[in-house]
């Protein structure tokens, strides 16, 4: 028999856990770029990498962790400028091509031998976040309700993560409710029209790319702090597409969409995994499926779920259907 209570507990644990918080933060940045401004940033993982490595290398060189976080964010802003200057004047698809390449280039650079003195090559950098855990005010113990509990270390990371997710969401809210945000949305709708009204479209797109990238870097640093580890091969393009999935599930261009999308994403991800594993153990699949088939099948089911969501809620959880139905004549 399947233990549905345990499955739900594990799914909820995943939905509010550290990766969910990290993807919520990351998706808030991507949502500013993609959802509000219409920028196709397919290299969001690159910003996360820069945030994590900027921090880890700073600490590794003897710097302070918090300075390291700021270094990571500053580097992401710089990366935004480097990507933006040549591409933002061109059509939208060029940004997509360049960003996906830059993401991979960054991963290959940090794992390369010539960068190894700084990045420690494929082994990466470990144990740089002790300062973060020293600040943990929670006494030893397990925190939560019923079976759904985190130890004091995880609970601390989870609390900080969701606080950051709310904070960056409020930052984006402040920006998007200002006249600046109105120009950003106008650019998403029609660049040339916005230009003809006297707005410096290039500068706005650049600002959006940089701020979104900085938020992505914060997510990257946060995730690395939890793992006390950065290594190049955690920063594969798949992370970008997870972040896009989160944004699209929540509803692109909606304020709380990224946070809700991340919760749903990580809930479903764990739920499918638990159900499949449970079913396997209960012998439901007979000899047809083995333990190694579960992983790919989970992704397939997840994809079907995503399609189902797009069919019935094409604008995402928070998106407005009315807005979606507007034809762009």
């Amino acid at each position: 028999m399947m233990d549905w209570v345990a499955i739900l507990v594990e799914s909820v644990r995943s939905a509010i856990g550290v990766p969910a918080a990290a993807y919520a933060i990351s998706a808030v940045g991507l949502n500013l770029q993609f959802g509000y401004t219409g920028l196709l940033n397919f290299g969001h993982v690159g910003f996360m990498l820069v945030g994590a490595y900027g921090m880890a290398i700073t600490v590794d060189l003897g710097g302070n962790l918090w300075i390291g976080v700021l270094v990571g964010i500053a580097l992401a802003v710089l990366l935004g400028a480097i990507i933006g200057i040549p591409t933002l004047r061109l059509r939208a698809d060029y940004l997509a091509i360049v960003t996906i390449a830059v993401g991979e280039i960054l991963r290959l650079v940090v794992r390369s031998r010539f960068a190894a003195p700084l990045t420690k090559g494929i082994f990466g950098i470990q144990r740089f976040a002790d300062d973060f855990f020293d600040l943990n005010p929670l006494p030893r113990g397990r925190y939560g309700i019923g079976d759904l509990r985190f130890d004091q270390r995880t609970a601390w990371v989870v609390i900080v993560g969701w606080a950051l997710a709310v904070l960056v969401t409020l930052l984006v809210r402040r920006l998007m409710r200002s006249p600046w945000g109105r120009v950003i949305r106008a650019i998403r709708e029609e660049e040339d029209a916005t230009r003809s009204l006297g707005k410096n479209v290039f500068a706005y797109k650049m600002q959006s790319l940089m701020i979104g990238g900085a938020i992505g870097a914060l997510a990257g640093a946060y995730l690395a702090i939890d793992q006390q580890n950065v290594s190049p091969d955690s920063y594969i393009p798949l992370l970008t597409f997870y972040a896009f999935t989160v944004v699209i599930m929540g509803g692109p261009g909606t304020l709380w969409g990224p946070v809700a999308g991340s919760i749903l994403f990580w809930f479903l991800f764990e739920f499918l995994d638990e159900v499949m594993t449970g079913a396997l153990r209960a012998g439901w699949f007979g000899d047809v499926l083995g333990a190694t088939d579960i992983g790919p099948l989970r992704f397939a089911l997840f994809g079907i779920g995503l399609m189902w969501l797009m069919a019935y809620r094409p604008a995402g959880l928070f998106g407005s259907r009315e807005e979606m139905l507007i034809d762009e004549r």
Binding site: R185, R188, D192, S196, N200, G253
Partner: peptide, 22 residues
């Protein structure tokens, strides 16, 4: 072009460009 617009020369387009979701 955006500075020309601010200087007082504003144009529209043959195919109307409305900012649909504003």
């Amino acid at each position: 072009c955006h500075r020309l617009a601010r200087m007082g020369m504003v144009r529209t387009f043959q195919l109307t460009k409305s900012l649909a979701r504003l």
